[in-house]
């Protein structure tokens, strides 16, 4: 009998988790629809948008640049080692480039920005919720979704592709540096192979991914911050949830987009 009781408990708790998950998904979808509905209705707070583009895009440059630089270098070494097994060392420039612009640039850029930006958005909006600043906005006839959420979501969606494009270049540069200094490629040849090999769609698909990841990052930060629980603990929880959900959703979305773009 005791065994049945335990199984019962386990099933009940699984059931509860599933229901809670469905609820969260529903709430997030509603939040996204609300945000989109405000996106297309005036006023647009241009000053806020500019400020957020600076904060989200520009100040993430060093983080994303360093990440792709080192990854590009490591990638070149690995591909060289792998290629050497069937005497195909010459593929290094092309595989580094395609791996960078199609996958690693957007995914690493997205994840780094998820850590940096989702967290800071969630902490900022969470603190504003806890200290009643969001209520205060409402009483001053300013819609908090329009004033706080829309500029952040728009800024992240617009700037992440630019950020990733720069990241792609730096990543390829990392591969180039390693290729030329450590692997005996000639500089001119490395660049020529890269440029000849890459197609516009390779780069463009990565940038579309980046825009989607930017949207995910900002929406998750805003959603968790906006609905933050009370007190410092609530804000801490909101920050963690924002980073975790944004990261997982980025990886899931990346798979789906890759499937859509590249499966034959």
């Amino acid at each position: 009998m005791a065994v049945i009781g335990i199984i019962d408990d386990i099933l009940a708790s699984i059931g509860r988790s599933v229901i809670e998950l469905c609820r969260s998904v529903g709430r997030i979808v509603l939040f996204i629809l609300l945000t989109l509905s405000h996106l297309f209705r005036p006023p647009l707070y241009v000053r806020e948008l500019g400020l957020q583009m600076l904060r989200i895009g520009y100040f993430s440059l060093p983080v994303v640049g360093l990440t792709t630089l080192f990854t590009g270098g490591a990638l070149a070494l690995q591909i060289y080692a792998g290629g050497a097994r069937f005497s195909a060392e010459s593929v290094v420039p092309s595989i580094v480039a395609i791996g960078m612009v199609r996958e690693l640039g957007p995914v690493l850029g997205g994840l780094m920005v998820a850590g940096r930006v989702s967290a800071s958005i969630a902490a900022e909006l969470g603190t504003m919720r806890v200290t009643e600043q969001i209520d205060a906005l409402t009483t001053l006839s300013t819609n908090p979704i329009k004033y706080l959420v829309v500029p952040r979501v728009l800024a992240a969606t617009l700037t992440l592709p630019a950020l990733v494009l720069v990241g792609d270049l730096i990543g390829i540069l990392g591969g180039y540096a390693v290729g030329v200094t450590r692997l005996d490629f000639s500089g001119a040849n490395y660049i020529k192979v890269t440029v000849d090999f890459l197609e516009v769609w390779d780069v463009l698909s990565g940038l579309v991914k980046a825009a989607v990841f930017g949207f995910i990052v900002a929406v998750m930060g805003c959603y968790h911050g906006y609905n933050s629980g009370r007190g410092a603990q609530g804000v801490g929880q909101a920050t963690t949830n924002a980073v975790v959900t944004a990261s997982i959703l980025i990886l899931a979305a990346n798979y789906v987009l890759t499937e859509v773009f590249f499966s034959a």
């Binding site: 200290t131 009643e132 600043q133 205060a136 409402t138 009483t139 006839s141 819609n143």
Partner: peptide, 20 residues
Amino acid sequence: DRDAFLARFGMLFQGGALFD
């Protein structure tokens, strides 16, 4: 029309609720 409604009110929050 919430904005028009709220335009008639002023509110001092207990904790101040200033935009930092």
